[in-house]
Design a protein around this nucleic acid. Structure first.
Length: 83
DNA sequence: CCCCTGACACTTA
DNA sequence: ATAAGTGCCAGGG
């Protein structure tokens, strides 16, 4: 069994293009529906460029945190959503 | 009705 | 085992 972090990364990689999931939804897909707090911490600390962590937003629709730059995150969502 | 704050739980190293 | 960080929920004004 890999670390929950790896599990979350895979769940985020499964997010369809142009769609955004909340940290809670991702945590649920990762196998720990009550670990949405851990998901936020992991994505913000380990935002790998191969992982669309920018598609993961807060339950309110806010972008939340982003290690690479919130501006980049917003731009990516705008382009993907616009497609 | 809207806005803000505090506390809580989960994970990682 | 501990420390640190994050997001969701609830209450109050």
């Amino acid at each position: 069994m890999k670390t929950f972090k790896e599990r979350v990364h895979e769940a985020v990689k499964k997010i369809p293009k142009g769609k955004t999931l909340t940290y809670k939804e991702v945590a649920k897909r990762a196998g720990r529906p009550k670990a949405y707090r851990g998901v936020g911490n992991i994505l913000n600390q380990n935002c790998d460029p191969r992982i669309p962590c920018h598609r993961v937003i807060r339950s309110d629709g806010s972008l939340g945190g982003y290690n690479r730059g919130a501006l980049q995150k917003r731009k990516l969502l705008e382009e993907e959503k616009g497609e």
